[in-house]
């Protein structure tokens, strides 16, 4: 008996939705923090995909979990760096709207 939570297709569809939402947010947002949040959604989609294949198809279920842990660590590091950059940008420009950060835009 296959129920809804025992089929890989459901998880893959959720991951695809998260990825699509992340792409949409990345394209539509006009603030740096909003784009960062959309990026986090894309990270989550990748992690969910890894965990799906880890659960259903991998011979060693520890591998995917270790990989997802590393993704989480890298995402945390990325967020720390990105937010400090955003705060530095805000201090210099009084804005974090990407359209206004155009000093080099001839």
């Amino acid at each position: 008996m296959t129920t809804i939570h025992h089929s890989p297709g459901v998880y893959l569809t959720i991951a695809a939705f998260l990825f699509a939402a992340g792409v949409y947010g990345l394209l539509r947002r006009r603030t740096l923090i909003g784009m960062l949040i959309a990026g986090e959604l894309i990270f989550s989609a990748a992690s969910l995909n890894f965990m799906t294949f880890n659960r259903f198809l991998a011979p060693d279920p520890a591998v995917g979990q270790v990989f997802v842990l590393f993704i989480m660590g890298l995402a945390a590091a990325e967020v720390a760096i990105a937010l400090s950059i955003i705060i530095a940008v805000y201090r210099n420009y009084r804005s974090i709207n990407p359209k206004e950060l155009s000093e080099l835009n001839g």
Binding site: R30, T31, I33, I37, A80, I87, Y90
Partner: peptide, 16 residues
């Protein structure tokens, strides 16, 4: 992550 982003939101004014 979310708490850090909340701190950044408080430091900058990032509303659309």
């Amino acid at each position: 992550v979310c708490v850090t982003i909340v701190f950044a939101v408080m430091l900058a004014e990032p509303d659309e």
